[in-house]
Design a protein around this nucleic acid. Structure first.
Lengths: 207, 207
DNA sequence: TAATCACTTGCTTGTTGACAGCAAGTAACT
DNA sequence: AGTTACTTGCTGTCAACAAGCAAGTGATTA
């Protein structure tokens, strides 16, 4: 209780507080208009701590991006389990939906940060690119496993299917971010699932 | 030749020069690290002209976004012609590909600007949102027309199909922007077309 | 065991250079 | 002369850095 914190604990506490403040401020004002001083002071520290802890604004946003991504990948893993093939792809879509419902703030900020990573000389492109590449390789494996067990037709290119699938997810989350009122997550995802089932199913599996 | 330009011409010339400079600088340094002074001076004018002409940095980027978007919509219109249904959707995908091949710089910058518009309190969200909404309504019409002429199965939700389709396009261009080396435009689009044909074709049309 | 001291780590404050935006001015067309 | 295109001087704000202060840590000594 009154036990003084160890150094490591102090750091962990301030670190976490900074990321939380950053997330709130990004949601309220966007990445550009959020200043490092605002983040530090909103977290209950000084205006200089954000720079000190994370080196730069880009460093802080990168850390935030990694933090939320870890969270999201947990969701994804537990949603997909050890499914493969079409079922894995559909389960991943459901996992996104669940994540966005349970943690809309995290979801929105992650999407905003991914967008920021698109600019040339963004200082944290690797985080975003790495995650998308990893997602795509996962999907490639799902497709190949589905082809191996006969669920998915053998004449589709697993890499092309994975690129297509990841493209859809990226764009879908982007549109959800930019126009949450007019974009219907559920029906759009349902259509995606329908198309996946119809277009990937091996002959005869398509009941 | 030595005829002095009219005021309107002077404006048009400097306006154009500013947008070209802005595009080059954004490609080289990203939107954040490009300064209004750089843009003005690269265009052969003073550091202050950009602010004067466009009011603000956001104003300039909005104008650039509109300018490239106009260009792109021309491409789209001429590529799709008066096709409807699945063929219109496939033709639009080809038009994107052609635009990106003919004008990769415009394509990249447009995508970067769309990403910038995603942030809350972006000062030009309407341009991006408007274009995406318009694209989606166009697709809804294509789908409905395809259903009317019997090409597309009647039991799909036109709005869901359109949302799905626009999602794919958004994400595909985003991935092309962020990792142009590892992303194969052609095969990914080919897979999208294949899925559209298989999953939307009315019964019996699926040769 | 407790006290102290040398050292490390967490955090703050002073400062600098760069930038966006504005306002007042100059030059070019009409 | 008057309007429109463009420039220059200026200000407030911000990211980044550097120097310092305070809180924690671990070894030595008694």
């Amino acid at each position: 209780m009154s036990t003084p914190l160890t150094q490591a604990e102090r750091s962990a506490v301030s670190d976490k507080a900074m990321l939380v403040s950053a997330m709130n401020l990004i949601l309220a004002h966007g990445t550009d208009k959020t200043t490092l001083a605002m983040i530090g002071e909103a977290a209950g520290y000084s205006r200089g701590l954000a720079t000190y802890q994370f080196g730069s604004k880009a460093g802080l946003y990168d850390a935030l991006c990694k933090s939320i991504s870890r969270n999201w990948l947990e969701y994804l893993k537990s949603g997909v389990g050890d499914k493969v093939g079409i079922e894995a792809m559909c389960a991943a879509l459901d996992a996104i939906r669940q994540f966005v419902e349970d943690s809309p703030r995290e979801g929105r900020v992650l999407q905003i940060l991914y967008c920021g990573a698109a600019s040339p000389s963004s200082e944290f492109p690797d985080t975003s690119i790495g995650i998308h590449n990893r997602q795509r390789s996962d999907v490639v494996e799902w497709v190949k496993a589905g082809q191996a067990n006969g669920e998915i037709r053998k004449d589709v290119d697993a890499v092309a299917v994975a690129s297509h699938y990841v493209s859809y997810i990226s764009g879908m989350t982007y549109l959800w971010l930019t126009s949450p009122e007019t974009f219907d997550f559920s029906t759009t995802n349902a259509e995606m699932k329908r198309q996946l089932r119809v277009s990937l199913a091996a002959r005869g599996t398509n009941a």
